[in-house]
């Protein structure tokens, strides 16, 4: 393994320092924590929108700090949920008096730690709401399992909830619109290679030169199926069809899409995938209102991509299209 790191144990700490060093006017770090918040947090009279989770998904989470998206972002160790006490500090620091929405990806660790943090914050009289994103259509959903993972669809939740909060929505309205996104979004991912975590220093799983993994998550966990290498078009078709199967869209529906890179895949290849994704959507009679292509929710240096589709209505279009000025995602009027 070769990486641009110093001590593996300092990875997250130094990454956060490097972020603050790059954007000292936009973000600050809560003392003694791995939490970054907007420099001007808490914003009086605005619902706070926060997120967090393991590191290794950059620009998620702190990359989305800024106007129109997140107020706070908690970084755990690589692929490990942040601890409840730090999450609580974040929630408190982002409460401008109107309460705080926590956007949680559906992983047991994240859910349990956010739950505890919410209970702790409510003891301090902060109103806290949670929305749990579970957009990964690769995983079977059932009451008796942990359910689906939260993956790249989470970025749409950040964007929409953040815009609603910026527009003056109250905690319930912000939560409701976040839940609307969760109900209408699906994602499916694949990997050409495993990522390598700094601690382990070796691929989390082995993939042969002729194999790919379908239905992977974002933590280097193996996927739901291993198959022979496919062309970009076949990958695009497979991922898109799986998502569409799940979403059950109607002819003429408008959608927003993300062709997301897992970190190690060049942008050119993501565009090659996007080309076919949009063709497939067109074949299904769907209209793409907005198409994102890039690294939004990564898995360290993993090669691969995911396809996210969100069904839109007028409210979601307005919020998705609203201005945002964050470190990694900006949108003009």
């Amino acid at each position: 393994m070769k990486k641009l790191i110093n001590e593996p144990g300092d990875y997250v700490d130094e990454m956060l320092d490097g972020m603050v060093a790059a954007h000292p006017k936009r973000v600050r770090r809560l003392d003694g924590t791995k939490v970054l918040v907007r420099a001007d947090a808490p914003i009086d009279g605005k619902v706070g929108v926060v997120s967090g989770g393991g590191s290794g998904h950059e620009p998620t989470h702190a990359g989305y700090l800024g106007e129109g998206m997140l107020d706070g972002a908690a970084a755990g160790e690589v692929f490990t949920s942040p601890t409840a006490d730090q999450l609580e500090e974040m929630v408190n620091a982002c409460d401008g008096g109107e309460g705080v929405l926590c956007v949680v990806k559906n992983y047991e660790g994240d859910v349990m730690n956010f739950e505890t943090a919410g209970e702790m914050a409510e003891m301090e009289e902060v109103e806290v709401a949670q929305v749990v994103v579970d957009d990964d259509v690769a995983v079977e959903d059932s009451l008796y399992t942990s359910g689906r993972r939260g993956v790249c669809g989470t970025i749409f939740v950040h964007k929409v909830a953040g815009a609603k909060a910026a527009a003056g929505g109250d905690l319930q309205e912000v939560t409701e619109v976040a839940e609307k996104v969760v109900d209408n979004v699906g994602t499916m991912g694949m990997a050409l290679t495993s990522c390598i975590t700094p601690e382990k220093g070796e691929p989390t799983f082995d993939l042969g030169e002729d194999e790919i993994e379908l239905g992977i998550g974002i933590h280097g966990e193996p996927g739901v199926e291993r198959t022979d290498v496919m062309s970009a078009d076949e990958v695009a078709e497979h991922l898109t069809e799986q998502v569409l199967d799940d979403l059950e869209l109607d002819d003429g529906d408008e959608v927003a899409t993300i062709v997301n890179g897992m970190g190690g895949t060049p942008m050119s290849e993501l565009y090659i995938v996007n080309r076919r994704v949009q063709e497939v959507l067109g074949d299904h009679g769907l209209e793409t209102w907005d198409a994102w292509v890039g690294d939004y929710m990564t898995s360290l240096d993993m090669m691969g991509c995911s396809v996210t589709v969100l069904r839109l209505d007028d409210e979601l279009k307005e919020l998705l299209g609203a201005p945002a000025d964050t470190l990694a995602l900006k949108r003009m009027d």
């Binding site: 160790e77 949920s81 942040p82 409840a84 006490d85 660790g109 349990m112 505890t116």
Partner: peptide, 14 residues
């Protein structure tokens, strides 16, 4: 709780 995180943190620590 405040050093492990993940699933193991709340389960073991909590």
């Amino acid at each position: 709780i405040s050093n492990v995180g993940g699933a193991a943190g709340p389960l073991y620590g909590g």
